[in-house]
Structures are given as structure tokens and as C-alpha cells.
Simulated scan of single mutants.
Amino acid sequence: MTDIVLKDADPVLVDRIKRVADTRGWTMPRALQYLLEQGLHVYEGDGAVRFDNSEADVLQAAIAALEQVPDDPGYAAIGRVAKTDES
């Protein structure tokens, strides 16, 4: 595997990479590899956000739970569009 070397990198960028590595418990080389891979996926792809299966399942479960909130004049109406006679 090729070593990843950053020369003359902005100190703020280096600090951000270190924070990602520390948060995830990664070494700096692992963090750089991951960030480069993810960045390339964004630029090579169509830019659409994709969830892995577990993330998609959790999101669907959360949406389903919110859809089960009973109608009331307060909380349950948030984000809902009132039905009209035409709907």
C-alpha cells in the first residue's frame, strides 16, 4: 500500500482530520484513507446521499413511528398539510 503524505497542509485541515481520527479511534493513515475514499465517492458519483441497509432500516422505522402519532391539534399536526375538499 502507498503511504499517504500531506505536505504543507493547512493546520486547520490537519486538526480536523485528527479530530475525525480521534473520534473514530483510527490512526491518522486510516482516517486519511477513509476520508479520501468517501470524498472520491462523492465526486465520482451523482452526489446522491445513500444509506447502508441498517441506516435505511432505522430511518424507515423512525418514519413509521412518527406516522403512528395520533392526530391532535398540537404536536401531531407539525409538518402535516391540512386536507382540503379537493384532496
Rank of each mutant, 00 (worst) to 15 (best):
3 D>C: 12
3 D>N: 13
4 I>P: 09
4 I>Q: 12
5 V>C: 07
5 V>Y: 12
6 L>Q: 02
9 A>F: 04
9 A>V: 14
9 A>S: 08
10 D>L: 07
10 D>C: 08
11 P>M: 02
12 V>T: 14
13 L>A: 13
13 L>T: 14
13 L>N: 04
13 L>F: 05
15 D>H: 12
16 R>A: 03
17 I>C: 05
21 A>T: 06
21 A>V: 07
21 A>R: 04
21 A>C: 00
23 T>N: 12
24 R>F: 05
25 G>N: 00
27 T>S: 15
28 M>E: 10
28 M>G: 02
28 M>V: 09
29 P>F: 02
30 R>D: 03
30 R>L: 00
32 L>P: 00
33 Q>A: 03
34 Y>K: 06
38 Q>M: 06
40 L>K: 09
42 V>W: 08
42 V>I: 10
43 Y>N: 04
46 D>R: 15
47 G>W: 11
48 A>K: 15
50 R>S: 07
50 R>K: 15
50 R>E: 09
50 R>I: 02
50 R>L: 09
52 D>A: 05
52 D>F: 08
53 N>F: 01
55 E>I: 06
56 A>E: 14
56 A>S: 10
56 A>H: 14
57 D>Q: 15
57 D>V: 08
57 D>G: 04
58 V>R: 12
58 V>S: 11
60 Q>N: 14
64 A>Y: 00
65 A>E: 13
65 A>I: 11
65 A>S: 07
68 Q>I: 03
68 Q>S: 12
70 P>N: 12
70 P>Q: 10
71 D>M: 00
72 D>F: 03
